[in-house]
Simulated assay, not measured.
Amino acid sequence: MPSTPPSPHPSPPEIPTRGPGAATAGWALLPLLVPGAGAPLAFGIAAGRRPSARTVAPLIAYTAAFLGFFALILPFDVGETPGWALWSAFLVMLASTFGAAIHSFAIRRYVWAPVRAAEPAPPPKPVPAGDWVAPALDQAARLREDARRLADGDPSLAKRSGVGRPDQPRHLDDGGLVDLNHAPADVLRDLPGFNAALAEQVRERVERIGPFQSLDEVIVEIGVAPGFERHLREYAVLIP
């Protein structure tokens, strides 16, 4: 395994703190240039450019204030508007005009700072073969050992679970075991040291005499080359 864990992706760059251009002052003055409607317009632009709580929440508040102004004035006939409604409408208009203009200048640097595109993720580093092959081989060896114990302790359950039968649907992972007594010839020929002729010889012997009782019996009767015995013992299993 690598001596140190891979470094996490770098955090996105912070918004630059240098001041925006003078042309953006026109945006900040929208609440004064268009009293009432200028504040929702200015903060709508801000929310579209840099959506966040700092822009969306004021957009909602100033839009509500703009609508609230009309809700205070329109229900009454001209000249019959009560004083409380007039004063409330005046305060709402004051807040959505001068207050919004001050607010716009306060966040102008944030809204109009350059928007940087997300940096692409660095390409994955090649993983040395030893970092994943060895653990995978160890895991397969443990699975074979577990499946072999199952075959020794409960052959019937091992047979129903598909141990040593890659030609059948698997109910458990046996790590690549092959049952010499039951697997078909096209599976047996892929075993270390086997070929099509040896595979057919194993099948004929089992059908004629019965299942093998030990791997030594297989090696002697079938004539497995000595150089492949260790590999055969690793992957072969004998289920009665």
Rank of each mutant, 00 (worst) to 15 (best):
R160V: 08
R149M: 10
P123Q: 11
R160C: 05
R142H: 06
P128H: 12
D138M: 08
S156N: 08
D152C: 06
E119Y: 00
P122E: 12
A151D: 02
V133S: 08
V127C: 08
R116E: 11
R149I: 07
R144A: 04
P155M: 02
A118Q: 08
S156D: 10
R149N: 09
A129P: 09
A141F: 01
L157V: 07
P135E: 06
P124F: 04
P120V: 07
A136T: 12
A121C: 07
A129L: 15
A158H: 03
K125H: 12
A141M: 05
R160E: 14
D131T: 08
A158G: 11
K159C: 03
P120G: 10
A134R: 15
P124Q: 07
A118R: 15
P155I: 01
R160S: 12
R160G: 07
P155T: 05
D131I: 00
W132H: 14
D138K: 15
K159G: 07
D146E: 12
R148E: 10
A147H: 04
Q139K: 13
K159Q: 12
L137E: 15
A136P: 02
R160T: 09
L150V: 04
P123W: 08
K125I: 06
G130N: 11
A134L: 13
W132D: 07
P128T: 01
L143V: 03
P122H: 09
L137Q: 14
A158D: 03
R160Q: 14
D138W: 00
V133R: 13
R149A: 15
E119I: 09
L157W: 02
P124H: 06
A151R: 02
R149S: 10
P122N: 08
A147W: 01
P135F: 01
G153V: 02
G130P: 01
P123M: 00
S156L: 12
R149V: 07
R116N: 03
L137N: 12
S156Q: 12
R116M: 11
E119K: 13
A129C: 06
W132R: 10
A134K: 13
V133T: 10
V133E: 10
P123Y: 00
